[in-house]
Nucleic acid binder design. Structure first.
Lengths: 159, 159
DNA sequence: GTATATGCAAATGTTTTGCAGCTAA
DNA sequence: TTAGCTGCAAAACATTTGCATATAC
C-alpha cells in the first residue's frame, strides 16, 4: 500500500501542518505494515533503517498527528504499549477495532463484523447513550494453538 | 457488599498465600465501591483513611493477587491508568466487560448484554478461534450530555 | 523570513522491584 | 520458627516536554 504524497501534504496543509520527510516515512512504515499493530518503538526501529537520524520523540509526535488526521488507528492490548496501524480504507466514519488475541502465543489478528450495530442501537434505545466508536477485544485460543494442543494430547495418550 | 472473611482466607490458603489486614482492606474497599472502576491510587487513598500506614506498593501487589484469584476485574480506559472493580457474582466463568464511555464528560457506566455470544460462536466457526473472554468498550455521548447539548442549542436559538 | 518541526536530554507519571524488617500461621 | 508479607525508596518503563537548532513554505 503506497502513500499518496500529495494527498498527505494537502491533508496536513488543511490543518496548518507542514509536510516533512519524517512524517512521510512514519506514515509509509505504517502503510507498508497493515494489520501489524506496531508499537512506537517498533515504528522507530523500522524508520531508523533508512533514516538513522530520526528521534523517538518525533515518532511519538507523528503518530499523535496521524491519529488526529484519522489516518491511523490506536490499539491497546493491555501489554503496556500503545500500538498503531494504518486505518482501513473501507470504513472511514466508524473506526472498528475487533481483535482476536491468543492467550497462548499472543498472536493478534483482526476481523470485521457488523453485528455490533444491533448492540449499539440497543444501547441507544435502552440507556440513551449515543455510540460514536467502539472497541472489541476477544481473548482466547487461536486455531494454531488449539491444533497444537490437540496434537500434544494425542501424543501423550499414545505414550 | 460485605466481604466473607473466611472464604477469602481459605481462597488465599488454597494457593499458599496468607491473609493479611492489608489484603482484606483493599478487597473491602473494592467491594464497597462496585462499578466504580478505581485506579490503584484511588484505592490507596481510600485504604489510607483507616490504615494510614499502608504503602502504595502493597496496593499494587494486592490488586495483582486479587486478579489472580479472580475476585476483581481489570479495566483499561486508555487514560493512562489501570482500573479495578469487584467481579460481579452472577457471571463467574465469563468476565464480561461492557463499558459506556462518554466522550464529553468522561463518565463510565457498565451494562450487561448477552448478544456477544452470537459473535463469539461466529468467530469460532469462521476463524477457528476459541473465545474465552472479551472486552467491549463503546465510546459516545451519555444521556446527560446529549440532553445538555439539546438544551444549549435551544437556548442559543432563543437568543 | 518566520512559523513550525526536529533531536536530544531531561522530566513525567504509573507501576515494579530490592531489601531489611515485620507478621501470620 | 519461618515462609511469606510489608513499607520504603529506588528503579524501570513508556511516553511527554523544554529548548535550541533546523527546516518547510
Amino acid at each position: 500500500m503506497a502513500v499518496d504524497r500529495d494527498r498527505f501534504k494537502s491533508l496536513l496543509k488543511e490543518k496548518g501542518f507542514k509536510m516533512t520527510r519524517q512524517r512521510l516515512v512514519v506514515l509509509e512504515v505504517l502503510a507498508e505494515n497493515p494489520e501489524q499493530h506496531l508499537t512506537a518503538e517498533e515504528i522507530y526501529e523500522r524508520v531508523k533503517v533508512e533514516n538513522p537520524d530520526i528521534g523517538l520523540a518525533t515518532v511519538y509526535r507523528t503518530v499523535q498527528l496521524l491519529l488526529e488526521l484519522e489516518l491511523i488507528d490506536r490499539i491497546n492490548l493491555d501489554d503496556g504499549f500503545i500500538r498503531y496501524e494504518i486505518g482501513s480504507i473501507e470504513e472511514k466514519e466508524h473506526h472498528r477495532y475487533h481483535h482476536l488475541i491468543c492467550m497462548r502465543c499472543g498472536k493478534v489478528s483482526a476481523f470485521q463484523d457488523d453485528m455490533l450495530e444491533a448492540l449499539e442501537s440497543g444501547v441507544r434505545e435502552a440507556l440513551g447513550f449515543q455510540v460514536i466508536d467502539h472497541e472489541v477485544k476477544l481473548y482466547g485460543y487461536c486455531k494454531d494453538c488449539l491444533e497444537k494442543e490437540t496434537n500434544n494430547r494425542l501424543q501423550e495418550e499414545r505414550v
